[in-house]
Design a binder for these strands. Structure first.
Lengths: 215, 215
DNA sequence: GGTATCGTTTACTGGCACTTAACAGTTGGC
DNA sequence: GCCAACTGTTAAGTGCCAGTAAACGATACC
C-alpha cells in the first residue's frame, strides 16, 4: 500500500491487499446474475471497461464502486474477499461426519416472491432449519396483504440490507447486525426494504406440522 | 463517483457513495478497542493522519485500507456501511413485543480465551441460544488441549475470518459462508485461524443441563 | 521545564481509478 | 454476403484524491 516509510517504526502488519480472486468472484457473480458488462456498468454508473479491468484484476476498485457492484450482484463484501482463494486444502478434508456445509455447494431454492433459501446444514434436519436467506430487492416472504403462520420459533440475524418485519400487529425495520426472534404461531411477514437485497441467517425451530400457508 | 459523462446514457443508479457515518463508526470501534490513532495506523501500515481524516470523513479510504481497518477492529465491512446512519426512525418503534434486538444494545460477555459472545435475542431463551460470536485472533472456545461437551445441538454460520472446528476426531477449516452443525455431545473445540478475527452466528439448541466443562 | 503521549490540520504529490475509443468475436436478420 | 447490435478486451491518457510529512495545540506525568 503506497510507498513505505524510509526510516520509520516498522509497520507491524501489512495485511490488506485485496486478494487476486476478487475479480474472478465478481465475474462469477455477474454471470450468475446474467448481466452483461455494460448492463452492470450502466446500473452503477461506471464504464464497462472499468468492470472488465476490475474483473481481470488490472485495477482495484474504489470502495464506492466495489460497494455498488456487490450490492447490484447481491453479495456480501466480506464473503467477497476474506479467505484468499477457495482453499484446495479444506476441500481435501473428508466430508466424513458430513457436518460441514460449504458455501459453494449449498442446496438452494428460489421462491417466486424474490426470496432465495440456502440450507446451511448438510442434511435436512428434523428439529431445526438453519438457513441463509436472500430477499432480493422487492422480495418478500409472502404476498403483500398476507402473512405466514406455522409451528415453532424463528430466529434471524440480518447480515446486510434492510429487512421489514411484521409480527402480529407490530412492524420493525431491521438494520444489519440487528436480530429478531418470535413465535412462528403469530402471523408474520418479511420483506426487503430499499434498493439492496437483504441477507439474513435464519434458524427455524420445530416447525412441525409445517402448515405453511397464508393465514 | 468521478466526473459524470456529458452526453451519455443516463446512469440508472447512482448508489454507492460511502455514508457519512462510516468515519464515526470506525472511530467508535477504535475507541472500543482502546487503540490510539497511531497504534492503529502502525498496525495497518498507514499514517496516523490518514486515520484521523478517514474518521472525520475528509477522505474515503481505499478498499485495502478500509479492509485492514475493519479487520484490525474486528468488525464487518457490510455492517460498516450498509444502512445510512443509525435510523432514528427504527428507534421510535416501540420495543413492545421485545422481539427485536438491536445491534447497538446487545448483551455481550467476553470470555478470557479471546472470544466474545453477544446475545441475539432480546431476552434469554430457554430453548435456544442465538449468538453473535467473535473469535479474536488467537481466540478459542477453550484451552488448546481440551474440548467441550454439553447437551443439545449446535449450528453455526461463519460470516468472516477463518474458523477452526474440531468435532470428535474430525477437524475442519471454515471459510466465510461455510456452516457447521453437530451434536454438542461430541467433544468440540472452535478457534480463530489466521490474522483476522472469526465472526459467526451460532444457534445452540437445548443445552439443558449445560454441563459446560472441558471433557 | 521537558517530553511523552494524544488527535488535528495544513500543504503537497504521485499513483491509480477512472475515462474514451478503438478493437475483435458472436449472433441474427434480410 | 454485410450491416447492426451485441458481446468482452485493451491501449492510452488524465484528473483527482488517497496517501504522505510535518507542524500544530492539548493534556498528562515526572
Amino acid at each position: 500500500m503506497s510507498v513505505k516509510p524510509h526510516l520509520e517504526l516498522p509497520a507491524v502488519a501489512e495485511a490488506a491487499e485485496p486478494p487476486a480472486c476478487l475479480g474472478r468472484r465478481l465475474r462469477l457473480a455477474r454471470e450468475r446474475s446474467e448481466l452483461s458488462l455494460r448492463a452492470l456498468a450502466r446500473r452503477i454508473g461506471v464504464s464497462a471497461s472499468l468492470i472488465s479491468q476490475i474483473e481481470h484484476g488490472r485495477v482495484t476498485p474504489s470502495v464506492a464502486t466495489l460497494y455498488a457492484m456487490a450490492n447490484e450482484l447481491g453479495l456480501l463484501l466480506d464473503e467477497l474477499f476474506r479467505d484468499n482463494e477457495l482453499p484446495a486444502q479444506s476441500r481435501e478434508a473428508p466430508q466424513t461426519a458430513a457436518t460441514v456445509q460449504r458455501q459453494s455447494d449449498r442446496k438452494a431454492i428460489r421462491l417466486a416472491s424474490g426470496v432465495r433459501w440456502e440450507r446451511l446444514t448438510a442434511q435436512p434436519d428434523r428439529e431445526v432449519e438453519f438457513l441463509y436467506v436472500v430477499y432480493e430487492v422487492g422480495g418478500a416472504s409472502c404476498a403483500p396483504d398476507s402473512m405466514m403462520r406455522h409451528g415453532g420459533k424463528e430466529y434471524a440475524y440480518l447480515i446486510s440490507g434492510r429487512l421489514g418485519v411484521s409480527i402480529g400487529f407490530d412492524s420493525f425495520e431491521l438494520a444489519p447486525g440487528d436480530s429478531v426472534s418470535f413465535d412462528a404461531q403469530t402471523p408474520h411477514r418479511l420483506w426487503a426494504i430499499g434498493d439492496e437485497p437483504a441477507i439474513a441467517v435464519w434458524a427455524i425451530l420445530n416447525r412441525h406440522g409445517d402448515t405453511r400457508a397464508p393465514v
